[in-house]
Simulated assay, not measured.
Amino acid sequence: MGKVLVIGSINMDIVISVEHMPVGGENVYVNDVELICGGKGANQAGATAKLGLDTVYFGCVGQDENGKRLIDTLQQSGIDTSYMKVKDGGSGQCYIIVEGDGQNRILVSPGANEKMTVEDIDQVILPLIPELDMILTQLEIPLECVERIVQLGKEHGVKVFVDAGPIRGCKAEQLRGAWCISPNETELGALVERKVQTEEEIVKAAEELLALDVECVLVKLGGSGCLYISKDERIRQKSYKVNVVDTTAAGDSFSAGFAVGVLENKSTKDAIDYATKCGAIAVTKKGASPSLPTKEAVMNFEKEYLRNETL
């Protein structure tokens, strides 16, 4: 299989488990607090590595103990962290409140993630270009960096997958030339600057992105699955029904699974199905890093789900 470069955010996640969110003036006791490596970039790198891809990660951490712990965590997953940079100040932190039904609310302090520069991107990507089969990125880093990543990928014939979240004011034009853009419904609406709700509206909005020299759009629909749109194909994939514990890294696992499926030369339909299984596995465990799917976990999921379906 090929080599993938993931460029994005890395945070120390403070995961706070509660039965329910407090309303104004209410005190709610916390069930548990954990410190876990997170951030959309780190999650995707962790997942691609666990799924068998040769993974290089680039992100920025701060001059603090969290930064050291975050790099150590990536290295323990077999990820090449040699290109990472240490910036002045603290590392990114993310406060994740997980309710009893698995739904989460997230507060982000970006820290060093916001100190990534276009010069950093050039220094990382250009030497690696001959080795790369795909670049994955997200919008938790400065948007000018995302634009440069897409531009370099297009110039050098490397597929760039953009997880279009969190939207942070990004405009569709800034992602011109990406190989694949993957937003959820809200993010898709923000990119085309209007609400999209029906499947017809989603397809029309996706077609507007395709007109920006984008090869495909993969819209995440949460519990309803996903919708893939390209000039030649339209594929509707249902989600797998599982016991939801924590949805934190589901989208990142989905993105990584799609990348793996494509680089394993699966058909588009099979790559999307593989991605959907990865997302389903991720929601069954608490925390970002511990919930990331492995190749073995996907194989076991396929066998177990098929067995349950035939009972």
Rank of each mutant, 00 (worst) to 15 (best):
I135N: 04
L107N: 12
Q151G: 03
D133Q: 08
E131K: 11
F161N: 00
A164P: 00
S91V: 03
L70T: 10
I135P: 08
G92S: 09
W179Q: 08
G153K: 07
R176A: 13
G157I: 04
V61T: 15
I121N: 05
N104C: 02
R168Q: 15
G111A: 08
E65G: 10
Q174K: 15
V86I: 15
F161V: 13
P166L: 09
M134S: 09
T81L: 10
Y57S: 12
Q75T: 07
G92Q: 07
K85G: 09
L74P: 04
T81H: 08
N66M: 09
L126I: 14
D72M: 12
S182T: 11
G90A: 14
A178D: 07
V86M: 13
S77V: 00
R176M: 13
I121Q: 04
Q123W: 00
V98A: 01
V98E: 02
Q103V: 08
K171N: 11
Q93E: 15
A164I: 03
G89H: 09
E99P: 10
Q63M: 15
P127N: 06
E144A: 07
R148F: 09
K87W: 11
P130I: 07
V86R: 14
D133A: 10
C170A: 15
G92P: 13
C60K: 12
V160G: 05
C60N: 12
L70E: 13
G177C: 08
I96D: 05
E140G: 02
K87H: 11
G62K: 10
Q63C: 13
K85V: 15
S82Y: 07
C180D: 09
V162W: 01
S91L: 04
K154V: 03
Q103A: 12
G92W: 11
T81R: 10
E155H: 06
F58G: 06
V118E: 11
M84E: 07
L74K: 03
W179G: 05
I129A: 10
R148I: 09
V162D: 07
Y83D: 12
G92M: 11
E119C: 00
Q75M: 12
K171D: 12
G177E: 05
I135H: 02
I129F: 05
R168S: 12
T81N: 12
I129D: 06
D101Y: 01
L136N: 06
Q93T: 15
R105S: 14
Q123A: 15
E147M: 14
V162T: 08
A178F: 00
N104P: 06
Q76C: 05
C180P: 04
K159T: 06
L152I: 14
I167C: 08
L107C: 10
I121R: 02
R69C: 10
P110K: 00
G92E: 11
C145F: 00
C180H: 02
L70Y: 08
L152C: 05
C145R: 01
V160T: 04
T137R: 02
D122F: 08
